[in-house]
Design a protein around this nucleic acid. Structure first.
Length: 299
DNA sequence: CACGCCTCCTGTGCGC
DNA sequence: TGCGCACAGGAGGCGT
């Protein structure tokens, strides 16, 4: 699951968190499936906060988790139908800093005092004596129970979410047409979630580097769009295969400076030589997001 | 509608 | 040592 990682930038070590994107969320999903499928939720607690994106979680009490699917960066848990036959759905989003843990259920009298500092935002007590904890320091995550599939009214972003990039629904021609009919920077369109689902800041930079497209490019012709389509699929598929581990642990080389493994070619590579042409990678801001690219091979 | 800027939040690094 | 500030970003809101 996403967690603190080592960074080495300009000779200084730093820690930061891996922001979960499609591969990381898929990895989390695969870990949750064997633990949660078939389990009944017997009690729920959640953090009341003015801006908490947590809603109607009490509706999950008494329900059984039937399936855990993923759309983009969302986890979708099907709950069994209510007495009147309406199936419910638990929608989860990790935001920037969300993570899950499954632990033995603690006695209720032992828990309240811990809630302010441990950043646990939601607890789902399960019928097997364990608790699913949703921890989210920055509160950008979300957890909502909705009538199954009622995205248009309840979670519009899900209703307008683009195709899954690792499925046949991600059509190259549709993608190219979508890029052709816009004036926004191509990176903004990748982050937008409507052209393609699940791409975030890291894999947007990686895919653009691989396709040799400048992140601020506002005119992406068909040939480059097809290249980018292919790059998105390759970058995400490779990351899913690595179980969403975006970064490998910081490693020392001959007792000198450490470096990333070769997983990342763009993100976080500012000032380093481009893995393809050796030019110094450059850092800028696109769509209010830190962006790294090669000024020579990405035009 | 499309685009793009602003805000939510908090841990962390860095300058002084 | 400690203070204050900048920075990180997914998604939602809002102004143009």
């Amino acid at each position: 699951m996403p967690g603190p990682q080592r960074d080495e930038r300009n000779g200084r070590a730093a820690t930061f968190r891996v922001v979960p994107e499609l591969p990381e969320v898929e990895s989390v999903r695969r870990q949750l499936v064997p633990e949660l499928t078939g389990r009944r939720i017997v009690d729920v607690w959640w953090d009341a906060h003015p801006h908490a994106r947590l809603s109607d979680l009490d509706l999950a009490v008494g329900r059984r988790i039937e399936q855990i699917a993923r759309r983009g960066k969302f986890l979708l848990c099907t709950l069994d139908p209510t007495e009147d036959g309406d199936p419910l759905e638990l929608v989860l989003h990790l935001g920037m800093t969300g993570s899950f843990a499954i632990r033995p259920t603690e006695p209720t009298e032992a828990t309240p005092s811990r809630t302010t500092t441990d950043h646990v935002r939601v607890r789902f007590d399960l019928d097997d004596g364990r608790t699913l904890r949703f921890t989210d320091p920055r509160r950008f995550g979300r957890a909502s129970v909705i009538p199954a599939g009622d995205y248009v009214d309840r979670i519009p972003t899900l209703a307008t979410l683009g195709p899954e990039p690792l499925s046949p629904a991600f059509d190259a021609d549709v993608f190219a047409a979508g890029l052709a009919s816009t004036s926004a920077p191509v990176k903004a369109k990748l982050l937008d979630q409507r052209l393609v689902a699940g791409v975030g800041n890291i894999y947007a930079d990686e895919a653009l580097w691989r396709a040799r497209i400048h992140p601020t490019s506002r005119r992406v012709g068909r040939a480059r769009a097809l290249r980018l389509h292919q790059a998105i699929v390759e970058v995400l598929a490779a990351a899913v295969e690595r179980e969403g581990t975006t970064f490998r642990d910081y490693q020392m080389v001959n007792g000198e400076s450490g470096r990333y493994a070769d997983f990342l070619d763009a993100y976080g590579q500012g000032d380093r030589p481009c893995h393809r042409c050796g030019e110094a990678m450059r850092r800028t801001v696109v769509a209010q997001r830190g962006t790294t690219y090669c000024p020579r091979c990405q035009r």
